[in-house]
Design a binder for these strands. Structure first.
Length: 135
RNA sequence: AGAGUCGUCCAAACGAUCGCUGGAUCAAUUCAUGAUCCGGAGGAAAGUCCGAACACCGCAGGGCAGGGUGCUCCAUAACGUGGAGUCACGGCGACGUGAAGGAAAGUGCAACAGAAAGUAUACCGCCUUGGAGUGUCUUCCCUGAAAAGGGGAGAUAUCUUCAGGGUAAGGGUGAAACGGUGCGGUAAGAGCGCACCAGUUCUUCGGGUGACCGGAGAAGCUAUGUAAACCCCACCCGGUGCAAGACCGAAUAGAGGAGCGUUUGAGGGCGGCCCGUUCGAGCUCCAGGGUAGGUCGCAAGAGGUGCCGGGCAACCGGCAUCCACAGAUGAAUGAUCGUUACCCGGUUCGGGGUAACUCGACCCGGGGACAGAAUUCGGCUUAUGGACGGCUCUGACC
RNA sequence: CGGGGCGUAGCGCAGUCUGGAAGCGCACUUGAAUGGGGUUCAAGGGGUCGGAGGUUCAAAUCCUCUCGCCCCGA
């Protein structure tokens, strides 16, 4: 009994901590994975854009927001495209809890997005996400 | 010190926080989820230019067509790759480059210029024979006092022209002109002959596994270039590619079979059941093909390091040792902060120097290339930041 | 993973197979014609043939490598 107590306490602590920190996780449930979902978004979703990104979104059928990233070959080589996708995912991971609702969001990078760094990316994406909530 | 050339190595490191992803173990446990531990991009992962492994399809054997390769020997699972050499070319040199078989099997092409572009011949030219013309000379005849004129014959020519023959020495060209120079020779010339030089073919000797190299002799043999033009010769190649291929397999629709039904009403609606009412021709089951989707293929050897032996080397053999070494699939391998190291620029300080400048320290600011596995290996090619070493040439000093 | 096409003057194209002086149309400049403009006529300028290397006497054309753009199949 005495020996078990701290262990259980520790376990609960870890679980609670993880519950708190899970708001920053980014698993497969948080992503759009199927081509049909992307096609549905481009067909029926609304779209907004600025000079670096375009976002098409519509209400999803899950209980949380989901993200898909589209960076075409036109934007740059594989290294550039991977970097943009990482920036976009990182921004979504750190800010998705501030976004109300259960949207399916597809972020499409435009050609100028190859030239900006992570801080600029965060700035312009934040701008766009705010316009989702208040159309 | 400068310029160059060849080769080897590295691809910033560490910590904290938050994430992503594969495997193993545990949580009653297959999935899902969570915890712990271990692992998570490159020298080119790139281009996809070659070669193989692997999978399926085809296939008795041989040939044609088509494609590829092309100095020699060796290495290799294989290669268009590599190593060692040969030859040619470039470079003062270190060294580099080379699709480097055959033009004497045949066909095609060689613009412009030029006489002519591959058969050796036509043109100009040179020489020669003959004819005609013209000029000159000699001689004869006629006219005339003479000068001179006319006509005939013969000879001759640094002349003109026509016809025949010889010749390939010479020919503003051209990328390239059928060996070069000299002497002889000739009517003029010509490898026509001779000497030397260059090449080709053949014979032979020596070295080398061989490509080839060196020497001797013979034949006047002199034959253009182009095969990354067709082609010939030798050798190699069955096709398609992990979206290969194997397995599981929903909903809907259609096809097949069986059963029950079509005023003797299957089945459905009117909250559950019966009655009732209403709609009115299909409904239920079976097995199979097959789509979306999913699982496997899919991550441990043509492996690295060291020593020994063979080989000039590429490489091969043996022993020891190290790892078990990324496996995603809208596609992971990251983000933020801090510290240190490196490079660049600047301020200040100190040392050296007349100065230009150089060396060291602190601080501030900035920078870090090319580039992302997609079935797996061996190469090639291309892109790109730096460090170190060998060698060559030039200059200065000792 | 595999296959195909294109790159020539500011623009659109021919020439590439079969190597031999870089062309056509529009556009541009100048001149004529008109009172002026348009139309028309005449003359003219403008091209490292995407880049590098090679074969050849000679390359837009042949060969190799490379850059960019576009398309197709599974």
């Amino acid at each position: 009994m005495i020996r078990e107590k701290p262990k259980r306490f520790f376990k609960q602590l870890v679980a609670g901590k993880n519950y708190l920190l899970r708001r920053f996780s980014f698993t497969k449930a948080d992503r759009i994975l199927k081509r049909s979902d992307f096609l549905r978004l481009s067909k029926t979703g609304k779209s907004i854009h600025n000079r670096y990104f375009m976002i098409s979104y519509c209400p999803g059928c899950y209980d949380s927001n989901r993200l898909g990233v589209t960076v075409s070959k036109r934007v740059g080589n594989a290294v550039t495209r991977n970097r943009i996708k990482r920036y976009v995912r990182e921004h979504f991971r750190l800010n998705k809890h501030d976004l109300a609702g259960n949207w399916d969001i597809n972020v499409i990078a435009r050609r100028d997005a190859a030239d900006i760094d992570s801080k600029e990316t965060n700035k312009w994406l934040h701008n766009l996400y705010r316009r989702i909530e208040t159309p």
